[in-house]
Amino acid sequence: MSNAEKIIEAARYHSEEIICPNVDQWESSLDYPIDAAKEAAKNGLLGLYCPKEFGGQGLSFAEGIPVFEELGRGEGLYAFSFSMHNIVTFAICSFGQEKLRDHWAPKLTSGKALGGFVLTEPQSGSDAARVRTHAVVNKNGSYTINGSKAWVSLADVADIFLVVVKTSEKPGKDDIAMVAVPKDTPGLSFGKPYDKLVSSFLPIADMFLENVTVPAENVIFPPGKGLSGSLMAIDIARTSIAAGCCGLISSSLDLALTFARDRKMFGRSELEFQGIQWMLADVATDLEASRLLYKNAARLIGTPEGTVAAAHAKRFTPDAAQRAIATCMQVLGGTGLLTPSAIERNYRIAPVMKMVDGTTEIQRVVISRSLQKYAETLPTKEEQECN
């Protein structure tokens, strides 16, 4: 068994033995399950893309992103928090300066520390180039940051955050940078966690930065490279979310199949009725299509085709998940409405997956722009008619 296969098995075990038996308790306690995250770290789930010399697994994105399908079977937004952490760990291991990397990478891969990625602001959700949080670059290379961020996952729980900032007052993207800000940095604070539809244990809140100063070695991407680094992180996140949606679909399908197989009505199993069979066949097709999309995107991350591939996956799979889970709930009848239950929780998580890291509509914008560029390469109508 390859290392990638072992990590997938570890993710499956974590989902079945750690998430599923405890997720209802997590919801009621409102506390992020730090102990569960530490257990995940022991099995290599918090350093997927980081080199082994720093305690990571050294996996490619194609090898590592299927982990989030397994975790998504247990709880989709818990899986999402791990995807954010792994993006931070990857960025620090791959692009961080030596002092920062040597200090933080072993902590992040071992679960002694958690990481968060911070881009969104109140006035700039999907428009990453409109960042207003401002950093002054001091003479010694340190950054002093002022501003606010919104929708910060693992707010006040993560130990280090990668924060996207502007370094001048000029409009545009040429001055955007990304810096690492430890949670205990003076001037960094968080608002009250948002009240959300689901996954109340995952803190998401506003971040406030008031004269937050970090040293030069905390710069991950200097001015001019911060936006491209952020966009790559978004591609990874979108593909990971698509994988997590497959977990939502597959767990819901398993529940519906088991229920329909075991429930007897009109002298036979519910699963023997053609209407039920066709409903679940459509769910199975959506699951297969979603898997192909996210696995293709994972393979292409970092290439010129990666962004559009991630957009296709993020555009299709959350919609497919919402559609599939509703179908599975229908198969369960009234039982599907009972709480707490995995299928009811999946039904609440699926719409969130459509929103985070770029809405469904934003993915259509990305795809449409690629089509416009492609259209410019096509022969004219007259040339096509001649052919």
Rank of each mutant, 00 (worst) to 15 (best):
I7Y: 05
L338E: 08
T303S: 15
L293Q: 13
A128G: 07
K99F: 00
V352M: 06
G275S: 11
N22W: 00
E70W: 01
L253C: 06
G275K: 12
N3I: 07
S368H: 11
D24T: 08
E70T: 09
R364H: 01
P351M: 08
V164H: 07
C246R: 08
L293F: 08
T133L: 10
G115D: 09
L287I: 10
L271C: 03
D235F: 05
D35N: 15
K52L: 06
R268F: 01
N22T: 05
P379E: 02
G267L: 06
F95L: 02
I18S: 05
S228C: 04
A129Q: 12
T133E: 06
C245W: 13
V352I: 13
E344A: 13
S2R: 10
H312P: 02
F54S: 08
N211Y: 02
E288M: 12
V366E: 04
L337K: 13
A128W: 13
K38T: 09
M329Q: 15
K225Y: 01
Y32R: 12
Q97V: 01
I145K: 15
R323Q: 07
P186D: 03
W278F: 01
I34S: 03
G72F: 11
T167V: 04
P171T: 02
V152G: 04
I8E: 09
A309H: 03
R364N: 05
Y347N: 09
F54Y: 15
